[in-house]
Amino acid sequence: MQTKRRRFTLALGGLLLGAGTIGLRAAAQPKEQVIKILARRFTYSPNQLTLKKGIPVVLELTTADVLMGFNAPDFQARADIIPGQVAIVRLVPDKVGTFTFLCDVFCGSGHESMSGTITVVA
């Protein structure tokens, strides 16, 4: 069942991320929550995520213009968001608090402010 899930991820986005492994480990956990995020120079919408500790999340990321990045270093979850494709990031909110995610692909004058927050509640 775990293998199937993994293949499914590959088929979806063509991008399997480091975070996928974390997702697998937590596969016995309750249902995953799917969140769609649209990136455009120089914002994400939504840019504030509130997650529940222990509930795995699947982020489906797309970009409205140029190549973007999504990086949540505290959860070792990152992806390139390629125009025309859906990038999948699996993330397990394993700690409570507020954490930064950011665009880590230099995308223009304004790139430096392109970030958001993940708030994990108990």
Partner: peptide, 8 residues
């Protein structure tokens, strides 16, 4: 090295 990836 990873000085502070949260700020790139």
């Amino acid at each position: 090295f990873d000085l502070y990836p949260q700020w790139d």
